[in-house]
Write a protein that binds this DNA or RNA. Structure first.
Lengths: 197, 197
DNA sequence: CGTACGGTTGAGTCCAATCAAGCAGCGTGG
DNA sequence: CCACGCTGCTTGATTGGACTCAACCGTACG
C-alpha cells in the first residue's frame, strides 16, 4: 500500500483490524485533544510494526509524515500465527517491551527536560535510528516537519526552531538546511540529552 | 518479601535478574537525572508485575511508596515457563501492550496538558484503578506523597497542591485530608482530563 | 514540649507559549 | 520567465503558567 504524505492509515476510534509494517517513509502515531492540541507518541520508520498495542479499537491515529509504503496484515492472521508458532508471540513481546522502554524514556523527556535537552535527545535518537552503518552518522536527515517535531517533544514550532538555533549558535550542530543537521559535537549533544546543563 | 517505605526493589543499572509482583502497598517506577530531576513512569499497585520490560539491566529504579509486600520471581524461570507454555508469553504480551497504551496516554498528559488537567486525569486514574466494585468510587485514597505525584505528572509539589486547591475551590472534589479526595463532580473531572477547558 | 516533615499558600521570576512579522523555497499560471 | 501566493521556517516582542524561593501550618513523633 502507498500512502501519501498527510494521509492516515487509521484514525483513533477505528476498529483495529490490521497491523501495518513500514516499508519506506515515516508514519506518525498521534492523538488529538478536542481543542486541537496534538501529541505524537512515536514516529515509525522502515521496519517498524504499527498497531500491535491496539486491542479492540485504535487509541491513536497513524498518519504519513511523508509519502510512504506500508504492508498491511489482517490482525486475525497475525494472532493465528502467534498461537501456532511461539516464536511469533515472542518476537511481538520483544517489540512491545522495547517500545515500552522507549515510551518510559520519552516520559522523562516530556516531564522533566527543557527545550534544548528535548531537541538534543531527539537528534540523537534520529541519528542512532538511521542506518547503523559503521559509526554514528554525523549527517542527520530530519524527515519530519517542525510541527511534527514540536508535537512529539511537547513544544511549539517556535520553541523547536529556537532550540535548533541555539544548538547551532553553540556549535553543537550545523544546520545547512532545515531538514538536515550535522553533528559537530556529539559528546555535548549526549551531555545535553542526559540533562547536564 | 517486605519492603519498607522508601526502600528500593532495584536501582537503575542493576542486573535485571528478577520479576516482582506487588501483593500489597505501592511501588514507584522512576528515573533520576544527574542533577536530581526525577520522573516517575508509573505506580505499581497490588497485582501488577514489575520488571518485565528489562532486558539485561533495569532502566528505571523501583522504590516502595509505602510499606509494601512483593513476591520475587527469577527472570530465568519466567522465561522458561514462557518458552514451555505459550499462554504465559501471551499473558506477558497482553500486559506489555496494555502498559504501552497507558504510557502513550501519559505522553499526551506530559506533553500537552496543563496542571489542572494533569491532576484531574491522575485522580480519575486512581479512582478507576482502585477496587472496581459496583461503580466508580467517590472516595479516592491517595497513597502517594505530593512529591511522588509531582514527579509522576511532571510538575512541582507546589503546583500539584495548587491544582488540588483549585479543584476544591471549583467544587469538583473535596479534600478532607491531603491523602483523600472525594469526587463531587465526576463529569467535570472527566471533561478536564479530556482537555475541555 | 520541641522538632521534623509533609503540605499549603504567597510573592516574584523565568522559560516557553503566544502573537506578530518577515523570509526563503516552490509550484502555479499569466 | 517571472510575478504571485502558499507553505514552512525563523526571529522578535510580549504574555502567562508553572517554577522558585520563602514563610507558615498542622500532624506525627521522639
Amino acid at each position: 500500500m502507498s500512502v501519501d504524505r498527510g494521509d492516515a492509515l487509521f484514525w483513533e476510534g477505528d476498529e483495529a483490524e490490521h497491523y501495518y509494517q513500514v516499508i519506506s517513509g515515516a508514519i506518525r502515531f498521534c492523538k488529538i485533544m478536542p481543542d486541537g492540541r496534538r501529541q505524537v507518541a512515536s514516529f515509525y520508520l522502515p521496519g517498524d510494526l504499527i498497531g500491535i498495542e491496539a486491542a479492540d479499537k485504535y487509541r491513536f491515529s497513524a498518519e504519513a509524515v511523508i509519502d510512504s509504503v506500508v504492508v498491511r496484515f489482517p490482525k486475525s492472521r497475525v494472532e493465528a500465527a502467534a498461537a501456532e508458532d511461539p516464536k511469533v508471540g515472542q518476537a511481538l513481546l520483544t517489540i512491545a517491551l522495547d517500545r515500552l522502554t522507549a515510551a518510559q524514556n520519552q516520559m522523562l523527556l516530556l516531564g522533566r527536560m527543557n527545550a534544548t535537552e528535548r531537541v538534543a535527545s531527539f537528534l540523537l535518537a534520529l541519528a542512532s535510528r538511521v542506518q547503523l552503518r559503521d559509526t554514528m552518522p554525523r549527517i542527520v536527515d530530519i524527515t519530519m516537519s517542525r510541527t511534527d517535531i514540536a508535537d512529539y517533544l511537547g513544544l511549539t514550532i517556535e520553541t523547536v526552531s529556537r532550540a535548533f538555533a541555539k544548538l547551532k549558535k553553540d556549535r553543537v550542530i550545523d544546520l545547512p538546511h532545515p531538514q538536515q543537521a550535522i553533528v559537530l559535537d556529539l559528546a555535548r549533544l549526549e551531555q545535553l540529552s542526559e540533562g547536564a546543563a
